[in-house]
Design a protein around this nucleic acid. Sequence first.
DNA 1: CGGACAGTTGAATGAATTCAACAATCGTGG
DNA 2: CCACGATTGTTGAATTCATTCAACTGTCCG
Lengths: 273, 273
Amino acid sequence: MTHPFVRDQNRRPVACGDCGLYRLCVTLGLGGDDAVLLDSVVRRKRIYKRSEFLFHAGEPAEHVYAIRSGSVKTYLTTRTGRVQVTGLHLAGELLGLAGLDSRAYSCEAQALETTSACQLSLKQLEQAALLAPAVHRQMLRIMASQIRHYEQLLLLLGKHNAEQRLAAFLLALSQRLALRNFSATQLSLSMSRGEIGNYLGIAEETVCRLFARFQEQGLVEVRRRHVRLDDLARLRVIAQEQAAPAPAAGGGPGSSRPPVPDAEPSAPSALSH
Amino acid sequence: MTHPFVRDQNRRPVACGDCGLYRLCVTLGLGGDDAVLLDSVVRRKRIYKRSEFLFHAGEPAEHVYAIRSGSVKTYLTTRTGRVQVTGLHLAGELLGLAGLDSRAYSCEAQALETTSACQLSLKQLEQAALLAPAVHRQMLRIMASQIRHYEQLLLLLGKHNAEQRLAAFLLALSQRLALRNFSATQLSLSMSRGEIGNYLGIAEETVCRLFARFQEQGLVEVRRRHVRLDDLARLRVIAQEQAAPAPAAGGGPGSSRPPVPDAEPSAPSALSH
DNA sequence: CGGACAGTTGAATGAATTCAACAATCGTGG
DNA sequence: CCACGATTGTTGAATTCATTCAACTGTCCG
């Protein structure tokens, strides 16, 4: 499991045009001519080792982080010390947007594995937004999509059982990896069982048991952090409706497919960005 | 329970300077000189009756809504028809921001009672943002605060039991009403037990039982939709930590206060805007 | 090699749900 | 203005899904 984007680990600044994620920064709204502008906004690139923090909740928010490779989890802590994972962020995503209003980060951001990220100066990003309207529009767009993401997550946590949550989690991850030209069926989890459970609002042990059950049912092949998705279709059924009736072995009369007048298979909306 | 902001129910457009929520729109970033600009952005004011929709999920998003009086719930629906309430919005709040990226509303917005709201044209709002940087900054700020709001809600739903959720809900509501110059202790719920339960991820019956229990314990006085908060301090303890030990009757040795090295009583962060 | 951590599995427990029946209240039309 | 039907809220009892507690195994890494 090597990460194709990690080309060099030295910290010498690299021009954005040379950055493996250039496409993604362009998405930031900075087209060809604005590339110089972009370079002025990027402060520095850095490699974070597993469990290192990109930023802490409450810290003055001076940068937004663009993940180039690796993955990062974000989480909140209650005053009694309980933790709630609020996000899993992959290469190509922007972190720390919520710091825009109060000038302080709203959550902890911790690398799940060796991770490379660029710091973009918030102040200069705002300046850039004044010069290039596209930047402004893109910032709004990114934040809006974050809002949608949370809305979907709320729906998942509020109205779906443990099985549906885990299935949705796997599908969303698969889809996001596919978008980044990784395999959609072979994935290596960067979060532990405990972290996944925390994220999905279920206990670590429940995650284990569900992985075991999914494997029994031939939906996945799980070996520690490595997961192979063998039946995306059936996973989708599980994620969306109640558990699917076993397809083989004496299907009773009229007991096929979802019981609801449904349409569009569509994407596993929650948990994706 | 009359709403002081509702002054006239006719639909004749009113200049923003005459609007009861002028302060709040100013917060939108449009200072004195920009008032004319603001007027150009506001499309029209309208009164929505209970259960009327301001907008539907998926609809092309052309406006943002500023609530002048009343209250609105937002919710998502699963393909199996289950509903998840994602927000309760009071006078002075902006709705529909998430439509900024995909140009479609992400959720349903339904009036909980007679509600007055202004439509702000998204297109013209973006134009205004180009002219007045303050508008741009304010839009980002509002969206960032929405993101924080959802993060806190996620924490509440993920790591707190039913009792803590309801206590936090009441406290947040109290605080928001106080900010709007309503009483902080006398509040009239605009959501039914079912809606509250749905919002908080607990069953309607559980909400009932909790209200009953809170009342037994002298924390609140509940009479249908009307609630009087009698012990904000103890409600805060419940919302944040495990249930408080009964204050009277033989406190055992060394069993006082939270067990965690804690600080700052602070505001009931979740559920507020 | 050994210690620590991550993951797994079983059994007992429990908080909240579900199902069900009932009570109170609202509002609408006769 | 009252009555009726519908909605909303309340309470009890049984059930359940997931948690918690606990013991154990496998795997990684110093």
